[in-house]
Design a binder for these strands. Structure first.
Length: 564
RNA sequence: GCGCCUGUAGCUCAGGGGAUAGAGCAACGGAUUCCUAAUCCGUGUGCCGCAGGUUCGAUUCCUGCCAGGCGCACCA
């Protein structure tokens, strides 16, 4: 597609007083393929030349030189519409996909640059709820998107393994703890203790004080506190890794908040040395009133550090350690202010790279009656969701394709794929109302829809005798074939835009479009039954679709079973 | 009160300042001697929250208002 775009720019730039950059920006995709592949709007020229845009469009069409890239260039109202040479488009697109394979769509513009992505970051000793799914799958997808652009990616799971909550947990465990229960179902049990702590603390505020004291002890290296903390952390991490394994998510680093414990004093000293810190109401803060922000708290009255302190410390450490050109924080939109404060403090400290830190926010998962709360115990466990989705997928397989080998495995791919896709298919900024019926719906705009298209293609390719064979993609000129080809040609543009806007949803939408275009084609055009030349061209086409679906689903962190 | 985000079909949502605003779900009707019917085709629905502004052109950008969500000092 790029080569066609460049050709349009080349053709127009001789006739139009606009620089090539601006020209390329102005090019549009017409609303319907009947209007061509590229459109150049003449409104800007109309102003410059003080002439009717439609007249300019007509004029341009007459004076444009010929090019074998386009089979037709026509004026339609104020637009000049370019129709790609169908044979050439089909031929280059299919050839590119089939020769590049998994690499199709990838670019190299990030070569030599490092991007740090901070995502998932569940809290130790709390169950992995559906709320954490968002950060995990969005972050994972961004990781893969930036890899596809050639960046060196570092995925960091900034575990919530430090903070006052451990004081609470230690108090709760020492008061009501049961060794055997902990052994048996660590996370669930720790969760129970956590919920119990909060309900009891409402009656007895002294518990909160005790919790704060124990966290202080933990921070000061108290052996008893430390041992309990280590135990909770190890048990939790084991369970998290099981979930990540189900989701197919990996990290380059599990350095959580606790990792920075030893460096915190140094960070606070540094901020003080720069004259940015002050005491307010007994706490150590960075005043941000100049920036119109509430103060950033570095130390509580009791001297213990806070979330912001650790994030500042971590950012500085990561810059030194990874020398990133960009760092993404995939964290809920409810923490927007926090990141604004942290980034502002970094800026005040004189770090120019602060501007390369980006908060990638997303909406909350909510119930009909409100936000999910770990404290109140109104949490849906992610593992339950994954299990139910997998079971449902298995039932459907049992019904539709009882002879399938590997049912278990495929059911997991489909069920979990559906859950991931459900999260990724809409703009991340929107809140999601958690609804079992929707999570467990596999029809319409879902992962199974895309996976099914892929499985069908694989099935045809399996049945095709004497394939691969030489093919002539220039035969792919009918409407259904061209629709598919045009979409396939656009893949790398979509990857670029999705990465640039941090929106995996664009890939999800794209992959739906490709699957839909294929399904239309499938019902309209026979492949195996077609006369030989056409058969081979269509086999090449669907093989290309298969590859793009695999690559696209991969970018979302979803697998593509060959049968389902 | 201040700040950030959201408002598009009955529901859930797409929509790169541009041409006639689109999907899925739900409803109804059709398609399988043929490559997986988890599919496809058809039927209709919109003061694009409201009011101004910028622009040749605004669902898209700006301002104000309304509604909902979130946040605003010792939680993360």
């Amino acid at each position: 597609m790029q080569m066609f775009r460049e050709e349009v720019v080349r053709l127009l730039s001789d006739l139009v007083q606009l620089d090539k950059q601006e020209l390329a920006m102005d090019l549009e995709t017409p609303p319907s393929s009947e209007m061509g592949d590229f459109a150049f709007p003449c409104f800007k020229l109309a102003k410059k030349r003080r002439q009717n845009p439609a007249a300019i469009a007509a004029d341009l069409v007459n004076t444009l030189p010929c090019s074998n890239y386009f089979e037709k260039i026509e004026a339609k109202g104020p637009y000049v519409n370019f129709f790609c040479n169908r044979e050439l488009l089909a031929n280059t697109t299919i050839k590119n996909i089939l020769t590049q394979g998994k690499a199709y769509g990838q670019q190299t513009l990030g070569k030599g640059k490092t991007i740090v992505i901070d995502f998932s970051a569940p809290n130790i000793a709390k169950p992995f709820g559906v709320g954490h799914l968002r950060s995990t799958v969005i972050g994972n997808s961004l990781y893969r998107l930036y890899q596809a652009l050639g960046y060196n990616c570092v995925g960091i799971n900034h575990l919530g393994d430090w903070g006052t909550q451990f004081g609470k947990l230690i108090v709760a465990y020492m008061q009501w703890g049961d060794e055997r229960k902990l052994e048996k179902q660590p996370i669930t049990y720790l969760y129970e203790l956590y919920v119990r702590f909060h309900s009891e603390a409402e009656k007895d505020p002294r518990l909160d004080e005790e919790a704060r004291a124990w966290f202080k002890k933990l921070e000061d290296g108290d052996a008893e506190a430390r041992a309990l903390w280590q135990r909770f952390r190890d048990l939790s991490l084991t369970e998290f890794k099981r979930i990540y394994n189900l989701l197919g998510v990996e990290f380059d680093s599990y350095q959580g908040e606790s990792f920075y414990n030893e460096m915190l004093d140094g960070t606070v000293d540094l901020i003080e040395a720069k004259g940015l810190a002050s005491i307010s109401e007994g706490a150590l803060i960075v005043d941000l009133s100049e920036e119109n922000l509430p103060p950033c708290l570095l130390r509580k009255q009791d001297g213990a550090t806070l979330y912001a302190t650790r994030d500042l410390c971590a950012a500085i450490y990561r810059q030194q350690h990874y020398n990133f050109t960009k760092m993404l924080y995939v964290v809920g939109a409810d923490q927007a202010l926090h990141f604004q404060q942290v980034f502002t403090v970094l800026q005040k400290m004189g770090y120019e790279w602060a501007e390369n830190c980006v908060h990638v926010p997303f909406g909350l998962i909510r119930y009909k009656d409100g936000k999910m709360s770990t404290r109140r115990g109104t949490l849906v466990f992610l593992e339950d969701v994954l299990t139910k989705a997998t079971e449902l997928a298995k039932e459907i397989i049992q019904e539709k394709n009882p002879g399938l080998a590997n049912k278990e495995h495929v059911a997991r791919q489909v069920g979990i794929g559906a859950v991931i896709f459900g999260d990724l298919s809409n703009d991340r900024i929107k809140n999601i109302e958690f609804d079992w019926d929707k999570v467990l719906d596999f029809t319409g705009e879902t992962a199974p829809y895309v996976q099914y298209a892929h499985a069908r293609i694989c099935s045809i390719l399996r049945k095709a005798e004497s394939w691969p064979a030489p093919y002539d993609a220039t035969l792919l000129t009918n409407a259904e074939e061209q629709n598919v080809v045009r979409l396939l040609a656009r893949f790398s543009d979509v990857i670029f835009r999705a990465a640039q806007t941090y929106k995996p949803s664009l890939i999800a939408r794209y992959v739906l479009d490709v699957a839909a275009a294929f399904n239309s084609f499938y019902h309209q055009c026979p492949v195996l039954q077609a006369e030989e030349a056409s058969r081979n061209a269509r086999l090449a086409l669907i093989d290309a679709v298969r590859q793009v679906l695999v690559n696209g689903l991969y970018l979302l962190g979803i697998s593509a079973p060959e049968e389902m």
